[in-house]
Design a protein around this nucleic acid. Structure first.
Lengths: 235, 235
DNA sequence: GACCTGATTATGTCTATACATTAAAACCGC
DNA sequence: GCGGTTTTAATGTATAGACATAATCAGGTC
């Protein structure tokens, strides 16, 4: 019940790189040297090295060989979970309340929020997510009925729209804006005192070029943290 | 000069999925059906489908076939760039000032921040990043000298430590906490009035199990946004 | 030196085949 | 119908070989 050979090769090369044994810029052995070392075919070695190349750990250059990449790209990758599972992972009871629901021809403001064409129709929702009965997050969402026609006949009274959309509409790209804001109109709804800072996440989701939904999530106060674990991205 | 065949297959299947032609749950053709359609070997088809499986678009099940996955995992992936390139991408002039630098045996607080052992030594830095001459971000950083011994002989007077570290120390995982906070001690340094909300990003970076560095980045006010674009993650 | 040319060579792609693995499906006795 | 067994069909892994591609290197010319 052993792991596949190409996995073993990949892991052993990866270990050499992460330990610093093979530093950035170092030329790792050629494929034919690995085939000798592991007594396997070139395809197997190639598969292992291609995986490392995909992961960004090495760079492969024809004729020259494969080289350890320096951890370039100051960027890293984090995950943003949906609200319900976020609350669940905090071991708190999740609650959901629909505050308002409207179906309307997109206003000028709507069109700006979602990059819609004139005359498009939308569903606008406001809802509150609770944790242990206390307000946790305020959600202000716009859904394009062109992209999600089924949303017209959905009440969203019992289940939050985020999960509903994600389960139905395939999407190809999204754009996040994360900022800190003083609680404004949201303060009353969230039951806050005046000058509480809030974490605001604004997300626009597209399927190809077509806008699907835009959502503004307001998390009250320093009480809430967005926690994210991740591994390097070297693009 | 055409693209490889496995890329073409991958792209065509991907298009079918993203267009909704093959909805979540749909069983896509078997490998042997693709080999007939494209007149190629099974390995080539397999490579294309494995790429789609890695990307999370399909799920492959022995004997049963390959199925379109629903966009599960309410999660998505964002990139957090380093401060200098963030400022550059806003078309503003980047400035850097080292406020303080200390080398010391880790205090109890340091050990908690970086998950260090007793007796470890650290370099503690405070610095300010400016955009067009105005304070943009306050950085409070701790570097483990066990993980990065070279940091002891580096002044960090001219260049920010983030880029320096990332170019040298390989890392395997990191942990982010993002929250909104009222500007406290940072307010004066950033030249802020009292009740300004700040976006705070706290990051701990590890190489294997060993802690490398911890940094607290404080961005003043609603003026600043963390912008991130990304494509679906279906894990 | 600078510039072109051709040989060399590691990686990139693909084939045809083989056997392993595993879960669905078909079978069977009850 | 129900539970257990066998068959079957799909993916998973691997091989040995072939040719394509492109970057490097060595030589030769100006």
């Amino acid at each position: 019940m052993s792991e596949p050979l190409h996995e073993r090769i990949r892991a052993e090369v990866e270990a050499r790189i992460l330990s610093g044994d093979w530093p950035p810029g170092h030329r790792i052995p050629f494929e034919h040297e690995f085939t000798a070392q592991y007594a396997c075919s070139r395809m197997t070695v190639s598969k292992a090295l291609c995986e490392l190349a995909d992961a960004g750990l090495i760079e492969r250059r024809r004729k020259a060989g494969s080289f350890v990449r320096r951890p370039q790209g100051q960027s890293a990758v984090i995950e943003i979970h949906d609200v319900a599972s976020e609350v669940a992972s905090l071991d708190r009871a999740y609650g959901y309340t629909l505050l308002s629901r409207a179906r309307r021809r997109a206003t000028a403001q709507d069109r700006e929020r979602l990059a819609l064409a004139r005359g498009a129709t939308v569903v606008a929702l406001r809802c509150r997510h609770d944790a242990d009965g206390l307000p946790f997050c305020l959600e202000d969402r716009l859904i394009s009925l062109d992209a999600a026609p089924d949303a017209a006949s959905e009440s969203f009274a019992a289940d939050p729209p985020g999960a509903w959309l994600l389960a139905r509409i395939p999407w190809t790209s999204a754009e996040h804006r994360i900022r800190a804001e003083r609680a404004g109109a949201a303060a009353a709804t969230l039951g806050l005192g005046q000058p509480t800072p809030c974490l605001v996440i604004e997300r626009r989701t597209f399927a190809g070029e077509a806008p699907v939904t835009q959502v503004i999530l307001t998390y009250p106060g320093a009480a809430h943290e967005l926690i994210a674990r991740f591994s390097p991205g070297r693009d």
